[in-house]
């Protein structure tokens, strides 16, 4: 086979760009071998076009379908077994995801609150987690620290006691 024959085939198959198609047409006008090749391609295509029409499944409708139905049942049963495994994995993953997200939020909040911004003003908030009744506020720009202590209502007033430290 040569490049010209492959171009002729591509032209026959409608796969050749227009410029090259014109060259093929020009060749066909003067080359009897090219014409014969084109005729061979057409005859082969015509012969093949009738081939599959005569092919039938060599099994009865019921028998052929019975195997397909069985295949579908097996596939669906297999999917049903896999699904609970997938769900429990997702469930377990979610159980870890929620607390992990909570920790991440606390870290991000801490980073945001301790960053330098507002024209150099640095503010820090702190809560003593072990003792949720204490709250500390520090303003580094003014050198102020405020500690808020919440006492039980029967000892002092319920608003709590605070003091500033300069």
């Amino acid at each position: 086979m040569n490049e010209q024959d492959l171009k002729l085939q591509a032209h026959f198959d409608g796969e050749l760009p227009e410029a090259e198609a014109r060259q093929v047409m020009s060749r066909l006008a003067r080359d009897s071998d090219a014409v014969a090749l084109l005729h061979t391609l057409k005859s082969t295509r015509q012969a093949l076009s009738t081939f599959e029409a005569g092919i039938k499944v060599p099994e009865t409708r019921e028998f052929y379908w019975s195997k397909i139905r069985r295949g579908i049942e097996v596939a669906e049963a297999s999917e049903a077994r896999v699904q609970p495994v997938r769900e429990s994995f997702l469930f377990r993953f979610r159980r870890l995801l929620v607390p992990a997200a909570g920790v991440a939020l606390i870290v991000i909040a801490g980073m945001v609150l301790t960053r330098d911004d507002w024209a150099g003003r640095r503010v820090e908030l702190e809560t003593a987690l072990a003792d949720s009744k204490a709250f500390t506020y520090r303003d580094y720009a003014s050198g102020t620290t405020l500690v808020w202590l919440s006492y039980p209502a029967e000892q002092e007033n319920s608003a709590g006691v605070g003091g500033t430290i300069d």
Partner: peptide, 9 residues
């Protein structure tokens, strides 16, 4: 494709 067609022919 060319080979297959020519061989079929």
């Amino acid at each position: 494709l060319f080979y297959a067609r020519r061989k079929m022919a």
